[in-house]
Design a protein around this nucleic acid. Sequence first.
DNA 1: GCTTTAAAAAGTAAATT
DNA 2: AATTTACTTTGAAAAGC
Lengths: 208, 167
Amino acid sequence: RWRKWQIRARIQSSIDRNLAQAMNELERIGNLLGLPKSVKDEAALIYRKAVEKGLVRGRSIESVVAASIYASCRRIKIARTLDEIAQFTKANRKEVARCYRLLLRELNVEVPVSDPKDYVTRIGSLLGLSGAVMKLAAETLEKAKNTGLTAGKDPAGLAAAAIYIAALLNDERRTQKEIAQVAGVTEVTVRNRYKELIQELKIEIQNQ
Amino acid sequence: MERSVPNVEYDPDQFPGLIFRLETPKVTSLIFKSGKMVVTGAKSTEELIKSVKRIIKTLKKYGIKITGKPKIQIQNIVASANMHVHVNLDKAAFLLENNMYEPEQFPGLIFRMDDPRVVLLIFSSGKMVITGAKREEEVYKAVKKIFDKLNELDCIKQVEEEEELEI
DNA sequence: GCTTTAAAAAGTAAATT
DNA sequence: AATTTACTTTGAAAAGC
């Protein structure tokens, strides 16, 4: 009787201690990423579920927190790449990705397939582009999706190319290099997606 | 053995098995001190059996004593197939149950099939990779099953035929 | 869990030319 | 800008940490 209570208390206190540390980490990483409270709250909820299921055992708290943040961003549709999140942890992208997959499998966390349009807002605002450009980029991506052009491709690269095209057409030109940098992809990827989009969607680009 | 047999890699600090490659058939084997070994790279069961015989013959030639006949078990078959259609992965990810589709990390949709128990990597091109099978027929069954399923879920564009290839 | 091996798929990346 | 090489994902076994 007494012993059982003792064990339960010990387990509860270990969960509490873990949670306290995790919440600090969550707050730290979340602020570094400039995430809204809603995302941090959702991530906290996911993390709590993970601890209660014992998924953090044998893994670093930091990695699981990062994975929870990524899952939360995806659910709330706040575009952040795994690399962006992992850069603020000691773990690498691969480890965070592994934890993320674990969360998807073991918890009932439903995450929608990422939409390139979510990246448009982020890339566009980081570059200070107008709403018209972002709207046009989103429309381009919608057409691309309906044509089956987007399957299997990195949404960040697709969004980057759509932004590049939309900015060109709206006289708000940004270089592929600038866009690639904020999108977290290489110039080569932006160029490849760009060529594909203008060719398949028959978009006319006048020189300059 | 690492000294008596040529073309061998052995670094017990790195891995307990000794790595031995055959040029024909082109396979690689991991040989352990327990006498067990892993052979990878064989394209068919026949090629696998031939490889095991040749590995044993080669080892004997260099003075390694081997008694009895080998017990061969196929642990994993990796195959690729082409459905010759375009697959709507977004739709498939939404409609299939045990799947994972994360295009920022990998272009293929990962589908875990219960029966036969295999994992399929499905690409928008209609090509795919089937792995985890222990028998060849499981591969064919899985391909047929996923093709029919994608078809009835209307995730396929421009249908033609269905063919296959094994590693 | 990790270590090593092989092969395919398609996308992305980095280093050379 | 084109090539080449290399990494991402999946599966399974081996013996040992």
